[in-house]
Design a protein around this nucleic acid. Structure first.
Length: 571
RNA sequence: CGGGGCGUAGCUCAGCCCGGCUAGAGCGCUUGGUUUGGGACCAAGAAGUCGCAGGUUCAAAUCCUGUCGCCCCGACCA
């Protein structure tokens, strides 16, 4: 491809609307242009790179026996009503105005419809079907360029199995294939265990990339062997030990003492003997959650424990219910002093299990209660993991301290189970002639995210630094000083040779552009190798090769150039 | 959906607070000339319904109301 006639609209200035590096660079390098919020046109350079990512995905999917197919983007809304997902998706789902159709945000329903009508025996499974297609989601807030768009390219695959063991196998095949795919794309990633959440099923893993542009917060061990969303992450933290003797309850005056740190300092007691009380609503029920010392409550974990939406209680409401303010609430006598209608639930973090000689609020402003024995003095409705892990805590698998980082989700794999088959009546006959629901899995990869994440991980002040696997072109051939007939002819000859040798080359043959401009553009576009044909080197029969990542320059005799380039391309 | 910001030439922005002559700059683009190893120089030029609608006014890019779009933070994210 020649830059003189190609469409690569580079820009010098950083676009005002772009904030993260990959977004800025994709615009500057002439890869994308926004058509509307979260809707992008992919220009030639970008699409070449996407095709490389898609080809890697295809190869690895095919390798596990998956079959590519192509599904409609439009689908009847009835299909989505059957599974209750019109409501579940809500405003995310794009509706077609003049027909009862929706633009598919994912394809479980269509796959399930296909399976229902055409897979009727255990002998026809397992099946893995995949598609690489455009998905539509009316994101409330598209952002970060191509990382979160309203229309995006997704590799989605779906497994159909007759047995749960079969599902496990299909799932494991995908997990292995995904690792290969992201590794081949040159991405540094980690695998995160995710909770099965509202989707049901028996397992889910996310493939995440560490990035400040990410929207998830992840705890990762030093060697990446443990990684989990902070919403579910745990760490090795010593529990409060149960002391041999439970001392008698004692109320102490603690004027203006509110926080755990203040209590610890004022009463000269260790954090390990302090129970922090926080009060939230779980649905319409007030919940007192006890945490050890200054542990921080994790909202997602609280929600899981209570099985309901949670929100912090309003200070006025708390005072009205308990007669005390936030800093003075405690578990002892709480139920007795609050109206029956309020019906407090009292739960505690696992670190407090069976603990005694604890200090907590006395449910009376400016007073705390010492020597609380959770078994003797109050009734705990349950112990749960409620605390938020902190950076530096020991990883649960004992591989050192945890880091807390932001991450972008590149892919997720999910054991769906029979949720969709049940809802849509997709059944087959097992080997005993008995009707069973088809067991499904679904597995997604965001293609644009691969590209954007790669750029996030591989760029410098000058521009993009492509990995060979995803680079739009392996080589960027630059003719420096095209007024020189020798240079122009030599560059043309090299371009022709490279083409004949099937080396991928972008040729900067522009005659009206200064050398500096070409070099800046080459660094911005970031092909792995720049092949520079200039007058001085040419006079000595040599051509210069600059490696983009290292900046290292080598000078190769013209006659040996092609062979040299071939080796670079294959290395 | 809550909070904040922005909308003026293809891009980056000034002008708006405090209304007033023909709406500006840099980059880019066109033409001619000079340049050619790190985003060149000179000259001439093309290019804007000032997001849109309504209002106030002798007069609106500027003030008021509404509306649409875009960005950021938060909420949401099967």
């Amino acid at each position: 491809m020649r830059l003189s006639s190609g469409f690569v609209p580079t820009v010098k200035e950083t676009p005002a609307d772009a904030v993260i590096p990959s977004h800025q660079l994709m615009i500057r390098a002439g890869m994308i242009r926004a058509l509307a919020a979260g809707i992008y046109t992919y220009l030639p350079l970008c699409y070449r790179s996407m095709k490389k990512a898609m080809e890697i995905i295809r190869e690895e999917m095919d390798a596990i026996g998956a079959q590519e197919l192509h599904l409609p983007a439009l689908s009847p809304i009835e299909l989505w009503e059957e599974t209750g997902r019109v409501k579940a998706f809500g405003d995310i789902l794009f509706h077609v105005k003049n027909r009862p159709l929706v633009l598919a945000p994912t394809h479980e329903e269509v796959i399930c419809w296909l399976a229902k009508n055409h897979v009727s025996s255990y002998k026809e499974m397992p099946q893995i079907w995949y598609q690489i297609q455009t998905k539509f989601r009316n994101e409330p807030r598209p952002r970060s360029g191509v990382l979160r768009g309203r229309q995006f390219t997704m590799k989605d695959s779906y497994s159909l199995d007759a047995t749960w063991e079969g599902l496990d196998k299909s799932y494991d095949l995908h997990a292995a294939a995904y690792k290969k795919i992201f590794s081949r794309c040159g991405l540094k990633f980690f695998v995160v265990g995710a909770s099965s959440g509202a989707m049901g099923g028996t397992g889910s893993q996310e493939f995440m990339m560490e990035s400040n542009a990410g929207e998830d917060v992840i705890a990762v061990s030093a060697d990446n062997s443990y990684a989990a969303n902070v919403e579910v992450a745990t760490s090795r933290m010593a529990p409060a030990l149960r002391e041999a003797v439970s001392a008698p309850l004692k109320e102490v005056h603690t004027p203006d003492i509110k926080t755990i740190d203040q209590v610890a300092a004022f009463l000269k007691i260790d954090h390990a003997r302090l129970a922090k009380s926080v009060v939230w609503w779980a649905g319409e029920t007030p919940v007192l959650a006890l945490l050890l010392g200054n542990d921080e409550l994790n909202e997602a974990k609280l929600m899981t424990a209570m099985g309901a939406e949670v929100r912090p209680i309003e200070p006025e409401k708390l005072l009205q219910l308990t007669g005390a303010d936030g800093g003075s609430i405690g578990p002892v006598g709480l139920r007795e002093r609050t109206p029956a209608s309020a019906a407090f639930k009292i739960i505690a973090d696992n670190r407090l299990k069976g603990a005694n000689n604890l200090t907590s609020g006395a449910n009376r402003n400016d007073y705390h209660l010492m020597n609380i024995d959770l078994e003797r003095d109050c009734r705990i409705d349950g112990y749960f993991d409620l605390r938020t892990i902190q950076p530096g805590e020991e990883s649960p698998n004992g591989t050192g301290p945890l880091r807390v980082v932001k991450g972008v989700e590149l892919g997720h794999i999910f054991k769906l189970g029979t949720k969709y088959a049940d809802a849509m009546g997709a059944k087959f006959l097992d080997e005993h002639g008995k009707e069973q629901p088809i067991i499904m899995g679904s597995y997604g990869i965001g293609v644009e995210r691969i590209i954007a994440c790669h750029i996030e991980q591989n760029h410098d002040e000058q521009g993009i630094i492509w990995d060979k696997a995803l680079a739009p072109f392996m080589f960027h051939l630059i003719a420096v000083g095209t007024k020189s007939k020798a240079v122009a002819e030599a560059a043309e000859a090299i371009y022709a040779q490279m083409g004949a040798a099937r080396l991928e080359v972008l040729f900067d043959d522009r005659g009206d552009v200064s050398p500096g401009f070409k070099f800046k553009d080459a660094d911005l576009l970031g092909m792995p190798y720049q092949v520079i044909v200039g007058e001085k080197n040419l006079a000595q029969g040599k051509v210069e090769i600059k490696e983009r990542r290292s900046g290292e320059r080598t000078f190769v005799p013209k006659e040996e150039l092609l062979e040299h380039l071939r080796q670079l391309a294959e290395a």
